[in-house]
């Protein structure tokens, strides 16, 4: 095992544990949101190990630093600190969901273990892979249209959020 592999398992384990913590924590929604931050940061570290440097930075900046802050704000502003699992009959239905989900996951994992393509080691990356230069050149030549679309999408988000939230809450 190389250092990178060990780090991958550490961060992967951290991501899974904190993701479970987010979903299973019904007592404290703030703690859920903070677990999500841990997941995001661990995923950022895994992107680093996968040599996607720019994406790793943006993952932590936007997901870890911005999106979860927004969640945290809403949780704190509305004081939504608790929640409970559904009672009675619904619990049965949802347990069925859980069992089905885990069963499908096990299927996928078995299939992944057999896949020859994934079992093969990927070769060395080309020079400058995942750095700002390569990503930027690709983004602003081949995918220019996508960038402009993203900007329109963000405009829609600003306007939509403002209209939905503009009235005072209390």
């Amino acid at each position: 095992m190389t250092t990178e592999t060990i780090l991958f398992y550490i961060f992967g384990g951290l991501a899974v544990v904190s993701a479970l913590g987010m979903v299973l924590n019904t007592r404290n929604t703030v703690a859920s949101a903070l677990s999500l931050v841990v997941t995001m940061v661990s995923l950022g570290a895994i992107y680093l190990l996968l040599e996607a440097y720019l994406v790793a930075a943006f993952q932590i900046m936007v997901y870890g630093g911005a999106i979860v802050v927004l969640f945290l704000f809403v949780v704190m502003l509305l004081n939504l600190s608790t929640d409970e699992f559904p009672p009675g009959r619904q619990r049965l239905i949802k347990s069925a969901f859980v069992i089905a989900g885990v069963a499908i996951l096990v299927q996928i994992l078995i299939a992944l273990g057999r896949d020859p393509l994934l079992a093969a080691q990927p070769g060395a990356v080309p020079e400058g892979y995942g750095g700002y230069r390569q990503v930027g050149i690709s983004l602003y030549t081949d995918y220019v249209l996508l960038v402009e679309m993203a900007s329109l999408l963000l405009l829609a988000a600003i306007v939509g959020a403002l209209i939905l939230a503009k009235r005072k809450i209390d």
């Binding site: 996607a52 994406v55 999106i67 927004l70 809403v74 996508l146 993203a150 999408l153 963000l154 829609a156």
Partner: peptide, 23 residues
């Protein structure tokens, strides 16, 4: 990786509007 950047942009918009709906 370009797609990841786009997903980030989509996720940001989704969260903004989704939490607006929540409010």
């Amino acid at each position: 990786q370009i797609f990841v950047l786009m997903v980030i942009a989509v996720a940001a918009s989704e969260v903004a509007v989704g939490l607006g709906i929540l409010l």
